[in-house]
Design a protein around this nucleic acid. Structure first.
Lengths: 136, 136
DNA sequence: GGCGTATAGTTACTTAGGTAACTAATTATG
DNA sequence: CATAATTAGTTACCTAAGTAACTATACGCC
């Protein structure tokens, strides 16, 4: 039973990101790029470490994703006193893509949540948070 | 709220596989290799398509993982009438590693499940299965 | 102030997962 | 029976995520 749980969980994660990637392909993004853009929209500017901590993803992964977004002109450098850090923010184009992608993600998630019981979702979130806490 | 749910979910998956990989490193496996070996133990022999369908992972991914396990001598070729297919099974060494890894995985999952409410887990599995079904 | 430590990022290398396009073998069909 | 369609697997190339080891800058402290 325990194994079944984690198995189900891993399969769902893969299917979910796969489908989300398919949806986001319309606006030329991958799901991890979307998460990063979403974060930048909310916090305006950030360092790579900020993003790494927030998304709970290692720094080298963030470096790569940021590089790709910068090459595509969605991200800009923001001056900073601390010369170690690389502070970034969205460009105009980045803001536009945020808007487009936002619609896509919203409708995707709504279609998935449609008809789900509120209490089931809340309970599931609680369980997952608890398990995540136990991992550390 | 919806976004929070998926966000939590993705983070948990990453943390989970990360920790599972750490545990399995003791016996020299990655979590995806473990899933494949587990499947082969249960079904004795299988084609790559069988595995692909069961794990819900694309064929090229299976090809790579199988190649690695074969190079390490954990998997052997099994003769087949259909000359298109590559039928495989565990070697002696593969069986040994299965045993060692099995203990590691079991104790890891038990430590994670310890103290969890049975009803919460059941409810969570149901929710995840439902969401996965809606993805298709 | 200088030196040791901590922090921010990067580089190189690993596995994992995906798509697209391909080969080879089998099955279906006209 | 010959040809078309399907199936099994592979190859090439993409992003994602991880670890280990590294550089460069900033900070703490004696």
């Amino acid at each position: 039973m325990e194994r079944s749980f984690f198995h189900q969980h891993l399969q769902f994660s893969r299917s979910f990101t796969k489908k989300l990637n398919e949806q986001l392909a319309e606006v030329g993004l991958y799901h991890s790029q979307w998460l990063l853009i979403y974060y930048l929209k909310e916090f305006e500017t950030a360092t790579l470490v900020d993003i790494s901590n927030y998304l709970d993803v290692e720094k080298p992964t963030i470096t790569r994703t940021v590089n790709r977004l910068e090459e595509r002109g969605l991200i800009r450098k923001v001056p900073s006193k601390d010369r170690r850090e690389r502070r970034i923010g969205l460009t105009e184009k980045g803001n536009e893509v945020y808007g487009e992608a936002g619609k896509v993600v919203k409708s995707f998630e709504q279609s998935l949540m449609e008809g789900m019981q509120e209490t089931e979702i809340v309970s599931t979130i609680r369980t997952i948070q608890l398990l995540k806490k136990k991992l550390n």
